[in-house]
Write a protein that binds this DNA or RNA. Sequence first.
DNA 1: CTGAAAGCGCTAACAG
DNA 2: CTGTTAGCGCTTTCAG
Lengths: 340, 340
Amino acid sequence: MKKITIEDIAKEAHVSIKTVSRVFNHEPNVRDNTRDRVLAVAEAMNYRPNLSARSLASNKSFIIVHFHDNPNPDYLDRINQGLHKACRAAGYFSVNEPLPLTNGSYAALAATYLTSFHVDGALLSPPLSDDPALLAVLREKNVPYTRVSPQFEKRSSGATYIDDKAASLMMTNHLIELGHKNIAFIAGPSSHGSTIERTAGFLKALETAGLSVQNCPQYSGDFSFRSGLNAGQKIIESGHNVTAIFAANDEMAVGAMMAAMKAGLDIPKDMSIAGFDGSRIGDVLWPQLTTIRQPIRQLSERATDILLTSLRTSETDIICEELPVTLLARGSSSVPKISS
Amino acid sequence: MKKITIEDIAKEAHVSIKTVSRVFNHEPNVRDNTRDRVLAVAEAMNYRPNLSARSLASNKSFIIVHFHDNPNPDYLDRINQGLHKACRAAGYFSVNEPLPLTNGSYAALAATYLTSFHVDGALLSPPLSDDPALLAVLREKNVPYTRVSPQFEKRSSGATYIDDKAASLMMTNHLIELGHKNIAFIAGPSSHGSTIERTAGFLKALETAGLSVQNCPQYSGDFSFRSGLNAGQKIIESGHNVTAIFAANDEMAVGAMMAAMKAGLDIPKDMSIAGFDGSRIGDVLWPQLTTIRQPIRQLSERATDILLTSLRTSETDIICEELPVTLLARGSSSVPKISS
DNA sequence: CTGAAAGCGCTAACAG
DNA sequence: CTGTTAGCGCTTTCAG
């Protein structure tokens, strides 16, 4: 079972290897007739170009790397699905590389990675989308990249994102409309750019509704379940008469929900809970979590599409797309028991 | 910023490129002196061998692919962590490839993948670990592989696994010791080999304890949350006086728990719930899920180690390792309210 | 222990 | 529209 190469195809199709190469690279200047013959032969012989050879000769690899450091497996998985789908549709391959920000030398790690593993482009997901050190490495190495949900210098690269502020405002309004006046907010970590936006949306909604910020205490967590649990406990002990908790992601919201349940509170009668993201964790609870559903797979797929398009057209236009979110009002939120 | 190649290192270290190559491939027959000099120069010039060139010349790629079709992102993530860690420690790279069994041509997909993307080995995780069509492709293409948690022909390849039957027996005994006599079991799908083992462990425990199988109804799901919810509803409506539900994975257990909560039952007073896997979903609930914790990351890391070792030593010994599990007794299980 | 030469399978740059 | 000739950066012979 010997390996079949471009030469075998050339011989069989009575053309030169260059012509075969042209066909497989979608280059112009091949007669339809010839092209069809080559493709037929290749199909018949089950030929696949050797990626290493292609990569060595052309200095292209047909590989896109996804750098990530998000602790949420669910989020990662959705990003990967979109990435994989877009890559496959374009004949590219995708690989994943964790880049732990907690490891002081993550930028050096990325640099090492990019030197030994030639990639054609990179996809960045939060929190790496906004990491200056990583972006610097990418630019220095001349690796094109697009970003999912960047917050800073949004238009400095191709990107897809949602309107965090508007989404957060939408959710806060939902709680306000239910009748809540004492709403606690659990913000994300400052390392995530979305934190500012989501907090701003929350505050704007309060302001518009004329609610006192004094009655709406703000806490902050690191997006982890545990930090939500801690914040939830503090909120409950604080004596603020809080009737609703809005957390900047679902993990923390579920943590807060657990704190409430532990304290013997009924959800949503005694305490409404709202999250942000639309991750699986919120589907698999009773009551199910009221949240903002982000189109994560599409964000990633579109971001990859944008990257691949820019690679192929070598266009310099920077494409940025905002995708819509949905408010999922479910069992964890309702009208407050006592309006204060 | 030009690319530095093996030639730059050779020139600078006053040796031939072949010697540099020897050093980087850990080949013998290099004087320590020479080796050190080469390494020093390479370090100073920040040299990294070009993977494509290496791959083209040696017909090795230093890439391990992980084929998977597990719907649980949490499980996948842990497998990936172990894989990544083991690969990195050995200078290998890892890539992921979903292979949806629901897609009729998944075996052909795998074949295509393996022809265009040269990999040195493959890691299989359930349910692919036991897929005959995929195994056939791998063998035909001569791609070495190891498997995580295979159930059939265990010793036909390198593998790591747990003792599913013993673990299931352990959990059932836990429930029996708490005083439960009417225990429902939700089995996994027949496509997963573990289903037989886990069911066998359940039945063995009943038998040993002298409990009647009639009082312990068996259901089956597909490992999804939703299927656990459905089974849970049936169990509650069945009038079997069931006081405990043991599901063959955590997702289904949580589904069953949700069914119980919806029906107004108190967990664990009215109904004890137990799962299997130790995935995040069970940590993030109130009460937390009693479950069997599998060392998923270690299973994957060891399986990868076994694969890499066999690649480098070209030894033909097949290594299989059984790793221990832990019973996590948490809030979702307790003594039954009424002993029947 | 070390080096020189010959490719790996493909694409780039030029000729026709 | 098509073919020829050089490499890409490395490893593998095979000689020393």
